[in-house]
Nucleic acid binder design. Sequence first.
DNA 1: AAATCGGGGAT
DNA 2: ATCCCAGATTT
Length: 342
Amino acid sequence: MDATAVLAWYDRHARDLPWRVSPADRAAGVRPDPYRVWLSEVMLQQTTVAAVKKFFLRFTSLWPTVFDLAAAPLDSVLKEWAGLGYYARARNLHACAEAVVRDHGGVFPQTSAGLQTLPGVGAYTSAAIAAICFDEKIAVLDGNLDRVLARYYALPVPVREAKDELRAALQASVPQRAGDFAQAMMDLGATICAPRTALCMLCPIQRGCIATEAGDPTVYPIKPTKAERPVRKGHAYVMLDASGDVYLQSRPDKGLLAKMTEVPGSDWAADLPDANYPAQGDWRHRGQVVHIFTHFRLELEIWSATVPAETLDGGWWTEPAALKSEALPTLFRKVLATAGLE
DNA sequence: AAATCGGGGAT
DNA sequence: ATCCCAGATTT
């Protein structure tokens, strides 16, 4: 692969992103802040640039350094992460900040191997930080690169079955400007060699792309057959006290939406469980919420009632106006909205 | 190797 | 409605 052509393209067409040092600034000697690069990379795991931007700006405003983030309570980190999804990332983010401060004096390790020992930092993220911050010559292989390389080599099998070969091929192409190259290839995948469209006429590596020579690059990557999404059903109970405050509680420490805030509810099962109200009240059915998770579809029946406050314990009461500052995942924001709140 | 773990933007 | 995103961790 022609890394020189990729870098020349990047010098002209690099995306302007809040966590990025532009190629011109890098050439002038500006180095990226590993804290900001790490934070952005964790947020970007399985998450689009568009969705991440405002969270990144909020986090760096609240916590400008790794010391600030390590000193923050986990609860406040989860609250700010609410809505971004994959909440294990937020818990690992906080644990990682603590580890960097406690074990590394607040300085991120400067190699991919060192970085990968940190919580929530795996093969991709460690390589990305090492390349972007320290120009380590290492293959940075994310979902974009999977697609670009699958097309470039007309990979005849799903990417998962040839990950090591793709990584080796990419590794052999990494130039001196390893950080710019990694970001260039990701920009290429995001803007030129996109999932449904390939703008091959604009692509700096069109020459050499086997799928393009063969005709239609978008037939790659070959997709593995996907399992269908099962349906789970349940009830959610929105309780108000006499003053209109809402009853909230914390989810368990492990599993889906762990440690996030919720309203009480039933189990989620293939067959709708019987309604079992958590307190006596004027229960009314308010509608249904459908929420799509990665591995199942959830259909919740939404109930609300005014109940005596003293009959409940384990959770807390919140004014409706204060709901925005609770660690509520999107699912439960939809539940509350259906019950007439928010 | 397969399952788990969210949410939204683009099409 | 489907696809898939700057994946990591657990089983």
